[in-house]
Computed example of a mutant assay.
Amino acid sequence: MEFCPTCGNFLQYELPHMGRPARFFCPTCPYVCHIETKVKIKRKQRLVKKEIEPIFSKDDMKNGPTTDATCPHCNFGKAVFQQLQTRSADEPMSTFYWCLNENCGRQWRED
């Protein structure tokens, strides 16, 4: 993808015509970029996968209030919870749970 250096719009591609080389042109301003015959187009780009950081750390959850929520993974009846406003103000808060079963310890959320 190429963008116009003058106005920032997406440049359009035009095929060669009557001896004129192929070119990129801006549909809004007079900017034109002629394409040489030996242009290498790079199509692959490796993306580095970032590690996902938890919203709440285990230390945050250990000191939180407990509730009688049932873990969907192990069906244990106690969990620690935290609430956070993740969407707009007119939407309800998201509740994040952490299972207190020592063998489970999974996290889940309810919106």
Rank of each mutant, 00 (worst) to 15 (best):
R106K: 12
K44D: 13
E91V: 00
I41G: 00
E53T: 04
P65Y: 08
C33D: 13
G8N: 04
K58N: 08
L84V: 13
Q85C: 06
A89Y: 06
R87S: 10
F56G: 06
K62I: 10
E51C: 01
P27C: 09
P30H: 14
I41Y: 09
D90S: 11
F56W: 02
R43D: 01
L11A: 07
C26G: 13
R106C: 11
S94E: 07
L100V: 02
F24S: 13
F96S: 02
F81T: 00
C71R: 06
T70C: 09
F76G: 12
T37H: 12
I55G: 07
P54Y: 03
T66G: 12
C71P: 08
A89R: 14
G105I: 03
V80H: 14
G19F: 08
P72L: 09
F76M: 11
K50C: 02
K44R: 11
E2C: 02
R43C: 00
S57D: 09
N75F: 11
E14L: 12
L84G: 01
N103H: 08
L84N: 09
D60K: 01
P65D: 15
F56H: 01
S57L: 03
V32S: 13
M1V: 06
Y13E: 10
G64C: 15
T67I: 05
M61Q: 07
S57N: 03
P72Y: 07
F25G: 11
M18V: 08
A22Q: 06
V32E: 15
R46C: 05
N101M: 00
R43T: 14
F96D: 05
C71Y: 06
K49D: 05
K40C: 01
Y13Q: 09
A22W: 01
G8K: 07
E2R: 08
E2N: 05
A79P: 04
T28V: 15
F24M: 15
F24P: 09
P5K: 04
E51L: 10
I35M: 13
R20Y: 10
H34I: 09
K42D: 05
L100G: 01
R87T: 13
G105F: 01
P54L: 02
Q82R: 15
C33F: 13
R46G: 03
Q85V: 04
T95R: 07
C29M: 04
H73P: 00
F25Y: 15
K49P: 00
C74K: 05
L11I: 01
D90F: 06
F24V: 11
P30R: 15
Y13R: 09
L100M: 14
Y97H: 06
F25W: 11
V80K: 14
Y31W: 14
T95L: 02
C33L: 14
F3L: 11
